[in-house]
Design a protein around this nucleic acid. Structure first.
Lengths: 168, 168
DNA sequence: CGGCAATTGTTGTCGTCAACAACAATCTTC
DNA sequence: GAAGATTGTTGTTGACGACAACAATTGCCG
């Protein structure tokens, strides 16, 4: 079944082997990606999966996920923001932010204060334990960032941040 | 968004507390991200959202999404692969691939051929219309890639691909 | 001043997606 | 041949984004 009978088709030319550089050892299998390599979106997606998994693992002991961390960071840096402002800044739906804040408020990290200027909106603040907790989260996030450096190198990480600076 | 949405901030000086200690609500765009800038994961996530949206929009007329495109590309470059092999190569669950292939098979782009060597598995092939369709998808994907170049620049895109080459 | 549109937070639905668990059919190994 | 692993499949769960609808409140405009 190996040599002759396996292929049901005469195999229409093994596609161009994209000879950029030299013979690179294909790690896992010998399955070619063809046009997929060279697509920025594919590379970015794979990298994003890796980096999020590492973040979640590194911040696992405090049970904080990337989105929660971003919300806490923005509130910590800009106390008194409304939910609308936070949602817009982070690019998340305000409907989604409701649940995120419900969770963070239950954990006593964030409090919603009724705004006097606009009684429709809530002013968001970190609680006292929220402040100290965020400090710890930031230490763990820095550790995660160190993992990124180990993975792609210090200069590459900085170049990456520079290239993507326009999207933050 | 388009080109000039970039903040014209000349240098990356670490912004401590944006001096909005007063209770005055911020003017929308002036919300500081504090520690969030400098996190690779955040930048990558935002970029990935942008790039996927552009891909979906550019390939909208043929109704092909990034994951579908990756599946078609891998099958096209490696005819006869099993579902397990495709799933492993692309890092998607084999349970998820079932639905993806159901959809692609309904659209007559892909066919599952019962393998004679291993009757548990299916050998995946593009149909004849699937081949021509994929050619068109690749042209559209190339157009999408041109949008990426317009957004971040030619050298930056290549540097990005180089940095993230290890994740493909 | 009064009414009407817009905004804010909230709830709910829908569709996508990843992560599992369970299962039948089949292969592999002993 | 029996036990265990693999492959495709189905189903469930939870996170997530996109929307729509709603009450309370604010802003606007005649």
């Amino acid at each position: 079944m190996t040599a002759s009978a396996a292929r049901t088709e005469p195999r229409p030319a093994p596609r161009k082997r994209a000879g950029n550089g030299a013979a690179r050892p294909n790690d896992a299998d010998e399955i070619g990606l063809d046009a997929l390599v060279g697509h920025a979106g594919y590379a970015v997606r794979r990298f994003q999966i890796w980096i999020f998994q590492d973040f979640i693992k590194t911040l696992g002991e405090v049970d904080i996920k990337p989105t929660q961390y971003s919300v806490l960071t923005v509130i910590g840096a800009n106390p008194g923001l409304s939910q609308m402002a936070v949602a817009k800044r982070l690019g998340i739906e305000r409907a989604r932010l409701v649940h995120l804040l419900d969770s963070l408020e239950q954990r006593k990290l964030v409090k919603r204060v009724k705004s006097k200027a606009d009684r429709r909106s809530h002013a968001l603040h970190l609680t006292a334990p929220g402040e100290t907790a965020l400090a710890k989260f930031k230490r763990l996030a820095a550790e995660h960032e160190r993992h990124v450096v180990e993975k792609i190198g210090k200069e590459n990480r900085e170049r990456l941040l520079q290239i993507l600076a326009g999207f933050t």
